[in-house]
Nucleic acid binder design. Structure first.
Lengths: 208, 208
DNA sequence: GTTCACGCCGAACGCTCGTTCGACACCCTC
DNA sequence: GAGGGTGTCGAACGAGCGTTCGGCGTGAAC
């Protein structure tokens, strides 16, 4: 139905605008009046698309988490080599991050702003995503010798270096997201299992 | 003068209580009434110690940044070996972080909430601190072979894995801050200059 | 015994917040 | 052309916000 599609498109645009403002000013500092002004809709008009400000934040977080999860599963599907699986995970994460900077900043920075059912549902996705990386690390250990550091610490350290980029990285600057991904893979793998990554051991990074 | 000292002590207690609440609820979600309730002072009584809510946040950030900066300078003073300097930097950072979890979460999470002069002053300290780590990395490169990744990326990656801990680390859990520091040093050095850190190359970590 | 700064407070001000409500124009269906 | 769902709006509500102000008790200074 055309109605439904137009409705969804407008909601998407609204969420995108909201994410932009949330990323810039922060969730709690942003008023519904700000969002109305920025998205070209009246204050009360917002409530036709969204039940509350909370739900707005939830929709941004839930949709983007779902997208990065799906994208990650597609990127790693069928890849047998654990190191390459890891590289694809990292690449996918940074790639999505860089091309949805505002949304991902909201995801990383405002994760504590949700409550109740909304929080539970987003946390479930977060748990799945974290688990996926941890499983890859377990595979890497199996094939590339013992880990030099605790797996849980390694997992969160890797997420830390990736997610922190919203504090400093400029997608339009001179550092490409490919270099970023390759760098973090090297940094991580070299320390985690002592892998010498100075040479081209990550073929897919150059192959596209 | 005894008056001044008592005043300062009360201000310190107030800042500590405020940092605790800010860390839990966030800066903007916390009202001055919340702080009054939590610190046992009346709402208007707060304004005897502090000019505004903004200044309260600034004082928390500025004082703790100054403390971690001074502590870092003391920890690295006189240490010649670049790798050990790096290890001490990391240890100091994580140590201060773990023992001032609330304050450091405020520092990491609410860095964008300041404006104007307050922002400028905190950013200056942040720049100094970042520069200090970058200089250590330059020394490490000089003595331990060429870097495998861009120095700027490496710097922020290391800060990322360290600062991210406020999202997952429990100082009272079974992971000690010593293990945390050692792990992140290994992780970083192994990937940055290909240093094999599986054996005890970081003497001070076990020596205290 | 008066003075005065200090530490602290209750009450209030003006403002902004998220949300609701009733209404209006539009367009498709019959 | 009547009816009803869809999309949008201005105006208003009650609540909570950061901040201010006048005043009160206390203890040291003279």
């Amino acid at each position: 139905m055309a109605h439904q599609q137009a409705h969804d498109e407008k909601l998407d645009a609204l969420l995108a605008a909201a994410a932009r403002v949330f990323a810039q000013r922060g969730y709690h500092e942003t008023s519904m009046r700000d969002l109305a002004r920025e998205s070209g809709v009246s204050l009360s008009g917002l409530y036709y698309y969204v039940k509350s400000k909370d739900e707005l934040l939830f929709l941004i977080q839930d949709r983007n988490f779902a997208a990065v999860l799906a994208s990650m599963e597609e990127a790693t599907a069928g890849v047998e080599n654990p190191v390459e699986r890891l590289a694809r995970f990292v690449d996918n994460h940074l790639d999505y991050f860089a091309s949805h900077m505002a949304e991902m900043k909201v995801l990383s920075h405002e994760s504590g702003a949700l409550t109740g059912d909304f929080l539970t549902r987003v946390n479930a996705k977060k748990r799945d995503y974290t688990r996926a990386l941890m499983d890859i690390l377990a595979d890497v250990e199996r094939t590339h010798g013992p880990a030099h550091v605790n797996r849980r610490i390694a997992t969160y350290a890797l997420f830390g270096m990736m997610n922190w980029i919203y504090n400093w990285y400029d997608p339009l600057g001179d550092l490409s997201v490919e270099v970023l991904g390759q760098s973090m893979c090297r940094l991580f793998l070299g320390g985690y299992v002592g892998m010498p990554v100075s040479d081209a051991v990550l073929p897919h990074l150059t192959a596209g």
